[in-house]
């Protein structure tokens, strides 16, 4: 794979590696107002992303991910709060900011389908003010990096979806930016293209020091690309931690238990009520079910079974994947919200 040094940025900006994080968001709020009322899409979001790291942005539809990303890019003016890329406010210093940041947005082609891959790379380099001679080496490296050399003279509309997505990312990189926002980069891609793109994105972070903010519904992508995950729900950040820590927090919480029959109904009710047992499956004189417990709760659970003379056959710790973590975090948040709404209602 060819390399180009990240320090030799050709867009005229000085490579000021200050202590400022690559991305800083302070109390970001966005309220959309219309005749029918107002909707708060993002509520007081604080976020920092260090240079050369990849951060995943997760959240259900309507969580405020796209509004956050577009606010970071200056495409949306926030109602309140401040957004800075490498210490520069994107709304006050757009020219300086756009020398450092680029984006591949979801649902947008991001490139000109009627131009060839090479023509697109040339155009987007020029859009950043790079002459064709100084950008040529970079373009060649990008074609090689994304395995697009054979497709360089083909019009983008004739490429596969995966190749088009690669061209979009390559065109963003052609502008010589070091902070990239990717909104659903693997949407609609086949497995092979997804794996391919995942690899390329991680390489950009590891070898070129690119900072990535990836919004995706594809948990595998987030899990394999990102160092850190931010989970949003209802316009707020409800979890912000490293992928490892999120796994640690939820690790060994879930167990698959198989007990020998008979499994008395009273005990079954107890494990459902107290340990939220689910997924009951009875077969060949054994009952299998799943429980979610935290830490020492597991020993209490086993003691409960033993006290009822239920013989435990197997216990398997189920490692949660990121999707499970995401669902649990967003479920918990929804429950908390509903409870506080109920409490508010009772107070009134």
């Amino acid at each position: 794979m060819s390399q180009y040094p990240s320090s030799t940025r050709s867009n005229g900006t000085t490579e000021s590696r200050t202590n400022a994080p690559a991305v800083r968001v302070e109390t970001l709020q966005k309220i959309y107002r219309s005749d029918s009322g107002s909707v708060e899409a993002v509520h007081s979001v604080d976020l920092e992303i260090e240079s050369g790291t990849a951060v995943g942005l997760l959240g259900p539809n309507g969580a405020g991910k796209t509004t956050t990303i577009k606010s970071l890019l200056g495409l949306i003016v926030p109602t309140n709060g401040r957004v800075a890329i490498h210490g520069k406010d994107v709304h006050d210093s757009p020219a300086e900011t756009y020398n450092r940041v680029g984006a591949v947005l979801e649902g947008a082609r991001n490139t000109y389908w009627r131009l060839t891959v090479r023509e697109n790379l040339e155009f987007f380099s020029a859009l950043a003010g790079q002459s064709s001679s100084e950008a040529k080496e970079r373009q060649a490296a990008l074609l090689e990096q994304f395995s697009l050399e054979d497709k360089a003279e083909q019009t983008v509309k004739n490429l596969s979806r995966g190749e088009k997505q690669k061209v979009s990312i390559a065109c963003t990189l052609a502008r010589d930016v070091d902070v990239i926002f990717l909104d659903e980069p693997t949407l609609g891609l086949d497995v092979e293209s997804t794996l391919d793109l995942r690899r390329e994105l991680r390489t950009m972070v590891n070898e070129q020091g690119t900072t990535l903010l990836v919004s995706s519904h594809d948990m595998d992508v987030i899990e394999h690309i990102c160092d850190r995950v931010v989970i949003m729900n209802d316009g707020e950040i409800i979890a912000d931690d490293t992928v490892e820590n999120l796994f640690d927090v939820f690790d060994t919480q879930q167990y698959e238990i198989t007990v020998d029959d008979p499994f008395p109904p009273a005990v079954r009710e107890t494990v459902i009520d107290e340990y939220h047992a689910t997924n009951f499956n009875q077969r060949e004189e054994a009952t299998r079910f799943t429980v979610k417990v935290i830490g020492d709760e597991f020993y209490d659970f086993v003691n409960t079974l033993q006290a009822a003379d239920v013989s435990v056959d197997t216990v398997t710790a189920v490692e949660p994947d990121l999707e499970e973590i995401f669902l649990r975090v967003t479920d918990d948040q929804t429950t908390v919200d509903q409870e506080s709404e109920l409490e508010d209602g009772e107070d009134r």
Binding site: L73, G74, Y98, N99, G102, L105, N110, F124, L127, A128
Partner: peptide
């Protein structure tokens, strides 16, 4: 075409 945002983000 979905390229307007890219033009907007030009220095």
């Amino acid at each position: 075409w979905g390229t307007l945002e890219q033009l907007f983000m030009s220095p």
